[in-house]
């Protein structure tokens, strides 16, 4: 027996899934409850003497939401953040959100800079600023994605921006490694130019390059961890939705 034959309400569930604009976990919960109720009601009506088709049609008439009910469900499942900001025009809200994200990113950058400025600047690689700038960008991307998925709960394009996190984490490592090589080039020039003993300069380079690489690795590790949490959560909820709707796991998970 095919999966479709075992689950007669699957086409209805898919139709509702397309029409219902709520977050993926909420959509899964609504559809899961609906399918159970539809199947149980159909079985009960069949037991009372209705034909399979009659029971199915009657169950759908009672329980399957029409357009007005779907809009009411969406209204009830509107995220708190969206309810609170409903009074603001869309354009203005976007500007405020971006400004808040920029402010948070700037704060992170300033905290990072403050911590580093406490250290001995002579042992800091100039490339550390590039690494920190990439780290701040990485933070902004992660914060933006987390905000979209968990606060605004906008799951229309859930995977958008996830690759950017990995790319930025890789770019941070590359900047750190590149900085170590850049410092090595400067070290060679200084040794060639004379002045301080080569062994002293070499130790200084070692400290500088270790610092820049370590900071880059730490930032990339944090970015990778954030990517893992976001991607894992998304895979989990998207997988549940696909299982419920009997969708091929290789299909793109983009939802309304």
């Amino acid at each position: 027996m095919s999966a479709r034959a075992e689950r007669p309400f699957l086409p209805t569930l898919r139709e509702i899934d397309r029409a219902l604009a709520v977050s993926i976990p909420e959509r899964v919960a609504i559809l899961r409850e609906l399918e159970f109720d539809l199947e149980e009601l159909r079985a009960r009506l069949e037991a009372e003497g209705l034909t399979t088709d009659e029971a199915r049609a009657r169950a759908l008439d009672v329980l399957s939401p029409d357009g007005a009910t779907l809009r009411e469900l969406e209204r009830l499942r509107t995220p708190v953040y969206v309810r609170l900001t409903r009074g603001l025009p869309g354009d203005r809200l976007r500007v405020i959100e971006r400004a808040a994200l920029a402010l948070a990113t700037l704060s992170v950058l300033l905290i990072e800079a403050g911590l580093l400025l406490d250290a001995d600047l002579r042992v800091l690689s100039p490339y550390i600023w590039l690494v920190l700038a990439l780290g701040a960008l990485l933070f902004a991307t992660i914060a933006g994605k987390a905000f979209e998925l968990w606060i605004r709960r906008d799951h229309r394009r859930p995977e958008r921006g996830l690759v950017a996190i990995l790319v930025l984490a890789a770019a941070t490592v590359a900047a750190g490694a590149g900085g170590a090589f850049g410092d090595l080039y400067m070290l060679a020039n200084r040794i060639e130019g004379g002045g301080a003993p080569a062994s002293t300069l070499a130790v200084e380079w070692l400290v500088r390059s270790c610092g820049v690489v370590a900071v880059a690795l730490l930032i990339a590790l944090a970015g990778g961890l954030a990517w893992f949490v976001l991607a894992h959560w998304l895979a989990l909820v998207s997988g549940e939705r696909r299982n419920l709707l009997g969708i091929d796991h290789n299909a793109h998970p983009t939802t309304r």
């Binding site: 009672v62 029409d66 009910t69 009830l76």
Partner: peptide, 21 residues
């Protein structure tokens, strides 16, 4: 949905999924 309809002798009945909201 079934019990409300049965207990009210069909006077009150849920249709089009209005029960869920």
């Amino acid at each position: 949905a079934v019990d409300v309809e049965a207990e009210s002798n069909g006077l009150f009945r849920f249709r089009h999924g209005t029960l869920y909201p």
